[in-house]
Amino acid sequence: MPARLTILDDHQGVALDSADWSAVRDAYEIAVLHDHVSDEDELVEQLADSEVIVAMRERTAFPASLLERLPALRLLVTTGLHNAAIDLDAARRLGITVSGTTGSGREVAELTIGMMIALARNITAEDRGMHDGGWQHTIGTRLEGKTLGLIGLGKQGTWVAELANAFRMHVVAWSPHLDAGRAEAASVTAVGFAELFETSDFVSVHVPLNDGTRGLVGAEELATMKETAFIVNTSRGPIVDGEALMMALMVDTIAGAALDVFDVEPLPLKDPLRSLSNVLLLPHLGYVTREVYAEFYGQAVEDVLAFAAGAPVRLL
C-alpha cells in the first residue's frame, strides 16, 4: 500500500486541478478533505495514517497535542511561508518536517479597494434591489478626496496605499514602528493611533495577528470614528474586537464594515453578523484566485517531491 497524503480544507474542490500531482501519485495515495474539521479527535481519526499533510493557510491548527497524536506524519506542507497555527517547536521535536510555499500577491490589496468601493457605492444593496425589480435606492460617496487610514504598512498595506493613491485618496498610516521616512516612501502620512481613527473615512487593517494585535481595534477606537466612516478587515478577524464591532454596527456608531476574515471560520450560520445590513461579508477570499492556487498547490507538489528525494525545500 502506498503512503497516504491528505489535503485539508479544499472547500472548492480545486486542489487537484490546480497543479500536476501525477508524480506525487506515484508515491502516495491522495485523499482530499473538502469540509473543515475543527475537532481534534476527528482530525486524528481522519489523519492518523497520513505521512504527508497539505494544509490551507492557518485554517486548521496543528498544536503539539495534535501533532503528538499523528505518529505517521513526516511532512506538513502549509500554503504560505508563515503559519502561526503550527507549533513548529513541537514539529521539530517529533521529527516532522514543515515546508511552505510562497504567498499571495496583490490580490488582497485589490480586494480591499474593491470592498471599499462596494461600501461607498452601496453595490450589494443596489444589486439586490435590481434583482428584486427596483431602481436607485441609495446615494453613494466617492473615494477621491477621502482619507484612508491604514493600520499597518507592510507589504499588503503598501500595496493598498499605492492603489488608493491612484484613486486620489489621502492615505495615512500607523504601525508600532512606522517612521516618517518609510511612510513618505509609500506616499502616505504617518499619524498617531488615535488620530487615524478620528480622521479617517475608511480604516483598513493590515497587521498580522499576534499577542500585541489581538483586539487592537476595540470599542474605544470605534467610538472615535466618524459616523460616516467604514472599517475594512482583510487581515485576521480577532484584530478587531468582535463584540465591539457588532455593537458599533448595530447602533450606527460607524456607517458600516467590510469583513473578509472572522474569529471563527467558516463563519457560523447563526452568527449575528449575517443579519446586519450595513456589513459586507466575504468568505476569506483575499488570496483566493486561480493564480494563487496554482502557486500554492504547484509548490506544495514541489515540496512533497523534494522531501521524498531527501532534500526538503522552503522549510519553516
Rank of each mutant, 00 (worst) to 15 (best):
D201W: 02
I231D: 00
E243T: 14
D9A: 13
L196C: 10
R93F: 00
L316V: 06
I96F: 00
A186H: 08
W21C: 05
E291N: 13
A219E: 15
G256E: 01
L249G: 06
G80E: 12
R92I: 00
I231A: 04
A306W: 03
A223C: 05
V301D: 01
R69K: 14
V261C: 13
S38Y: 08
G215H: 11
T289R: 02
T79S: 12
E291M: 05
A248I: 12
R106H: 13
Y297N: 02
F230E: 01
A166Q: 11
R121T: 04
A186Y: 10
L178G: 04
H284R: 13
N83F: 01
L33T: 03
L269G: 07
V52C: 03
T79A: 05
M56V: 08
L67T: 03
Q136L: 14
A180R: 12
V171F: 01
A90L: 02
A311N: 12
M56D: 06
A248E: 09
L163I: 15
T141Q: 15
L94T: 05
T199W: 01
R274N: 13
L73F: 06
G237F: 10
N278F: 05
E107A: 15
N278S: 07
R290H: 14
A300C: 14
G133F: 01
V191L: 06
T224W: 10
E195L: 03
L269Q: 11
V288F: 15
K155C: 01
G80Y: 13
T253K: 15
A19E: 06
L143F: 00
R106E: 14
L249C: 07
I113D: 05
A223P: 00
P2Y: 12
N165E: 09
T228K: 08
L163V: 12
T141W: 09
V188T: 15
G154E: 09
G212H: 13
A15Y: 00
G149A: 04
A183V: 02
D271G: 00
V32C: 13
P63Q: 11
V98F: 02
R59K: 12
A309H: 07
E40F: 03
L143K: 01
P268T: 07
V240S: 11
V313E: 09
A248Q: 12
R69L: 10
W159A: 15
L196R: 08
S275A: 15
A244C: 08
S65K: 13
L178Q: 04
W135S: 10
L209V: 12
G286S: 06
N83C: 14
R274T: 07
E40A: 11
V279F: 05
R236G: 08
S18H: 03
R57D: 13
G310I: 08
Q12F: 14
S50K: 08
L81N: 14
